[in-house]
Amino acid sequence: MMNKLLIKNPIYLISLVLVTLACEKELPLNIPEYEQLVVVEGMVEPGEKTRVLLSLTAPFFNDYDSVSMLDYRLTTAKVVMRYDSVSEVLRLTKNKKYFPPFVYESTSRGETGKNYSLEVTHGGDTISASTYIPKPTSIDSLWYEQKPDKDSSFYFRIQFTDDPATKDYYILFTRVRGKEQKFYPTRTAAYDDALFSGKQVTFRMERGVTSVLDVNDMQSYRLGDIVVVKLCTVNKAVYEYWNSYQNLLISSANPFSSPSNELESNINNGIGIFGGYGATLDTVVIIKKGDE
């Protein structure tokens, strides 16, 4: 994420200097009572079932492990999705690909260009959100390059052409087959076409943060990896969500972050994202050292 940091917030570098001068200590704080909110993680894609994970926010300063984190899952809500004039109740299923492993799933599959809305009722509260699946963008070219001075570390470059007629936002995901159960955002995943409207662009893709449960995160792609790349066209709300999500992952309460560093949710009466993704997929196998 360093690339993004450099580009986005040069003052992070001042923080590097200050931190070297500075000393650190643990801080006793009076922890406030927290207000529990419903957390929504929902995705709708062309040709895929809609999947919604629900949980509740947890108190901040506790010890946790993967078992106690499960205590904050929400499996007793009623989840309804609406599109066109259809209203569908999503069914709770167990799915070990996800964490917590409980997913509300539709039977219908997403379609490009459609609007979707979501309504979650839980303990008298109604949580709602809506999204849209924009037209997918095709991948012009995709290749990998070896990192200098490193034996078997690789990154990708993806090339695609922005549609000059529309205002577009993009999110990049990858999945390493056999090592990962699902797609994770790349290290710098969110792009706004304000920078390259109507142009053909190339972006470097580094493997991103996977899971808090995975201590060895921020790995590279390796020799022999079969990597599925997913380029998604999204709307502004989804872009803002991922942008703020990735910023929060690295910055937390850093004073050098921007003053209003908060998660940009599109959920009413809750936090999280219900996103439509216009997805294009491609698969590459890293078969040899050096540039192709």
Partner: peptide
């Protein structure tokens, strides 16, 4: 005011 578990983070 608490944390949220989103995309396993």
């Amino acid at each position: 005011n608490g944390w949220a578990l989103l995309h396993e983070n």
